[in-house]
């Protein structure tokens, strides 16, 4: 155990001292702050609009019962935070995974590590734990920023339930980021040229994080016109469902495309927990998880697979086979 901690500690200090990592962290925090500011301004605009409408209605002599006051759900403002964790969080995972292997490979220090009385999987586990700590630190700082800004901007106090939901989102964010960490580590171990490993990781990142969700998004018939196709057609929700019922195959392909990406699963679950879609607002964590357990399971499996493989690769005897 002592040895695992030694490796984990070194791993964490190495990563925290890396400039590229720090730049990415700053980017991420910057985007988190901006996106929350945007969301809160957006909400304040809605409040102003509402108050104006109420005034107009009252001046006309009518009551304000016919329009709804915009409801404030502070967690909803975190929608873009999830978006940025999807994109930049994954890149952070890639960079950490890459660094954790590249620092040993080019310098032949892997031989030194392996010739110590340490079990091979302990080295792998040490690396995973060290970087998990770093990722939790990143998420912790992000959480701190979020909490601070929300209090500062709107004086929004999060309820216990909301804090629990937020923590759950962050746990899944950790699982999500670690998927990319594990994937890149494996590739970096397996590939003769580190550069190719990094390249493939970024290609996978592009495809999973950006392209697949983008395809799903652009194929959505409702997204063909700014503001929504069905809205432009003046169609009610019930009618829309009925019409779309005739296009099951198309919708199936679209959905299957999205299902193949861990990002989409992570996004669906997080959005539900944050109540980005109003139907989930006010629901308990249990009810949401009951509805979205499928997505949670996928994120968890995506998380486990590469890390488990990494430990297995470390344990097997072929780490150096590329050398000759």
């Amino acid at each position: 155990m002592q040895k695992i901690i030694t490796i984990a500690k070194k791993e964490a200090t190495d990563s925290l001292g890396d400039k590229l990592f720090l730049v990415l962290l700053i980017f991420l925090l910057m985007l988190v702050v901006i996106s929350i500011v945007v969301a809160s301004m957006d909400f304040q605009n809605k409040v102003v609009e509402y108050n104006q409408s109420v005034k107009i209605l009252e001046s006309l002599g009518g009551g304000a019962d016919s329009i709804y006051a915009p409801q404030f759900f502070p967690l909803k403002m975190l929608r873009s935070v999830v978006d940025y964790l999807e994109i930049l969080g994954a890149v952070i995972g890639i960079i950490l995974g890459y660094l954790s292997i590249s620092k040993e490979k080019g310098k032949n220090t892997l031989q030194l590590l392996l010739s110590r009385p340490v079990k091979r999987w302990e080295i792998g586990l040490g690396k995973i734990l060290g970087n998990s700590f770093v990722i939790w630190l990143v998420l912790g700082i992000a959480m701190f920023f979020i909490y601070g800004i929300m209090g500062f901007l709107g004086g929004a106090q999060l309820t216990g339930m909301e804090i629990m939901k937020l923590i759950l989102v962050f746990i899944f964010s950790y699982l999500y980021i670690m998927f990319f960490f594990g994937l890149t580590s494996i590739l970096a171990i397996k590939f003769k040229l580190l550069f190719n490993a990094l390249l493939i990781s970024f290609v996978v990142w592009l495809v999973i994080v950006l392209i697949i969700p983008q395809i799903g998004d652009t194929m959505d018939p409702d997204n063909q016109i700014p503001g929504g196709f069905f809205k432009a057609m003046n169609i009610a929700k019930s009618q829309e469902k009925q019409i779309m019922g005739n296009f099951k195959n198309y919708e199936f392909v679209r959905n299957a495309t999205e299902e193949s990406s861990i990002t989409k699963h992570y996004e669906r679950l997080s959005f539900a927990l944050l109540g980005v879609k109003d139907e989930y607002n006010g629901k308990t964590i249990f009810a949401i998880l009951n509805d979205k357990w499928w997505d949670g399971l996928w994120v968890f499996l995506f998380f486990l697979a590469p890390l488990f493989t990494e430990l297995l690769i470390f344990e097997k005897n072929n780490l150096l086979i590329n050398k000759e």
Partner: peptide
């Protein structure tokens, strides 16, 4: 063990 060309951390 001292491998060839180790550069250390």
């Amino acid at each position: 063990y001292l491998p060839e060309n180790v550069k250390f951390y």
